[in-house]
């Protein structure tokens, strides 16, 4: 164990991990976060707290993470490279650790063009790969990015990164994953999977390179509420592949929400049998309350206890 992360301990025990996502609010009340945390508490091992996802201003992931933590769930703080430079990021990492946060997920972040402040100036001082490496070196080498020693109480995060098997160039995706592992990534959460066949090909390449033995891969799933939601993801979200069958299935369904849950549960059951996948990450966007049902019906309840 490199860290005090509960997620790390569960994954290291070889348990099939379950994480979910909580999106912080566009205001300063913690009530909704508390509510979602209480509801999910017994059903997931940790929750991701997004960092102004799609470049929309929301409560900071660290602050929201604290509310989640107070309500009994371990947070995974997302940190993007879009809004902060290396100084601010390291400062926030120290702060988050001091508050008890033990997991960080490093990502580039959606371009500001998609958000509610498209005229903002982006930062991108460092990229996600360099961020991963920075967090690792702060922990293992006890140094800041500049090389200066962290004299005491270095932040010891369990380091996460993302992988998108549906982006291009496809053959390079696994190579880039390896690069992230070399940089220091210890767990990976993937983009939402709808095209299972492509994901399986991705995992095959992962196994060929032996990467499943060096990193914990948590497969991303998203329950869809309607065929329109599926269509939107299919056509308007870059780096996503949604097969027509899924759109059709939801279109034909009498109760599309119920069908969306069914699809998600089937996906999880399928994913569990893919060698090298060590967990599932449920991104129920604006539908957090459905997570317990999905976990339960997918046969992932009760959750194991961390050591």
């Amino acid at each position: 164990m490199k860290t005090e992360s509960k997620l790390e301990s569960i994954l290291n025990k070889g348990e099939f991990a379950v994480t979910a996502e909580i999106g912080p609010p566009k205001h300063s009340s913690p009530e909704a976060i508390k509510h979602h945390a209480e509801m999910m508490r017994d059903y997931v091992d940790a929750t991701n707290i997004t960092d102004c996802q799609t470049a929309i201003v929301r409560m900071s992931s660290i602050a929201a993470g604290l509310h989640v933590m107070k309500n009994g769930i371990e947070p995974i703080i997302q940190m993007t490279c879009r809004d902060r430079n290396r100084i601010a990021m390291q400062s926030d990492l120290l702060g988050a650790y001091s508050l008890g946060v033990r997991n960080v997920l490093c990502l580039s972040g959606d371009h500001q063009k998609f958000g509610n402040h498209p005229t903002a100036k982006n930062v991108y001082d460092i990229d996600s790969m360099q961020l991963i490496n920075m967090v690792r070196r702060m922990r293992d080498d006890k140094v800041f990015l500049c090389g200066e020693e962290i004299k005491q109480a270095e932040p010891r995060f369990f380091i996460g990164a993302v992988a998108n098997p549906f982006a291009d160039p496809f053959e390079f995706r696994v190579v880039r994953l390896e690069k992230k592992i070399n940089a220091g990534a210890e767990f990976i959460q993937t983009q939402c999977i709808f095209d299972m066949e492509r994901f399986e090909r991705f995992m095959e390449m992962v196994r060929q390179r032996g990467l499943h033995e060096r990193v914990h891969i948590l497969a991303g799933v998203t329950p869809l509420k309607s065929w329109r939601a599926a269509k939107y993801m299919q056509t308007s979200v870059s780096g996503m592949i949604v097969p027509d069958e899924i759109v059709e299935r939801l279109k034909k369904a009498e109760d599309p929400k119920k069908e969306g849950i069914e699809i998600c549960i089937e996906q999880i059951k399928h994913i569990r049998n893919i060698p090298g996948v060590h967990g599932v990450h449920i991104m129920a966007i604006a539908w957090e309350e459905i997570v317990p049902e999905i976990v339960q019906r997918a046969g992932l309840y009760p959750r194991p206890k961390a050591e």
Binding site: H111, D127, S128, A163, F166, A167, D168, S238, G239
Partner: peptide, 13 residues
């Protein structure tokens, strides 16, 4: 668009 030095990011399609 993100001045990434270790690309491509997950938005490339």
């Amino acid at each position: 668009s993100k001045s990434i030095l270790n690309g491509p990011c997950g938005g490339s399609q």
